[in-house]
Amino acid sequence: MAVLRRKKWSPYTVGAAIGVLETVAMLTAKKPLGITTPFEQAAVMVAEKVAPEAMQVDDYKAQSGMEPSIGWEWGLVGGVVLGSLVSARLSNDPIPPAVPDAWREKIGASPGLRIGAAASGGALMMFGARMAKGCTSGHGISGTMQLAASSWLFNPIIFAAGAAVAKALLGRKS
């Protein structure tokens, strides 16, 4: 299966296959692809174990009506890591450097700085995703395909905010 070993597929092929996968998920799991919900559920579980009072978990539960549970979405998140690992090994990809090229050129080679920035970026992104109830998968693909108004509002906002920050951080100085 040489095609599985190829390093890159056309974005249209990949996109069409993800669209089919979305349809299969709607049919088999009765829900579309999404990544960030299990992070909120995991956070509640950790908070409940470690510091239920300081984290006001009861207050959160009462207000949100959410009871965390380990389910389909948790499998989905783990599967994405696994599937990418399999594809990368089949393509014989080298292990990438901790500091991506564009970041090293524009900001610096310090791995500590890159790791700190990545963790802060991840935290900010997840906080925003939970406020909006979705991410690039849940709103960006799953929501837009269902023609949800919220998702068609979310997309231009994330790309506008993202483009502004990316330009300030990594944009070419000319």
Binding site: G121, G122, L124, G128, I157, V165
Partner: peptide, 23 residues
């Protein structure tokens, strides 16, 4: 959606991956 989307976009630019692609 508006505030969350703004934070999300800024965080995504800083991280360089979105939630799915980071996994």
């Amino acid at each position: 959606v508006v505030l969350g989307g703004t934070l999300f976009g800024a965080g995504m630019a800083l991280l360089g991956y979105c939630p799915g692609t980071s996994m």
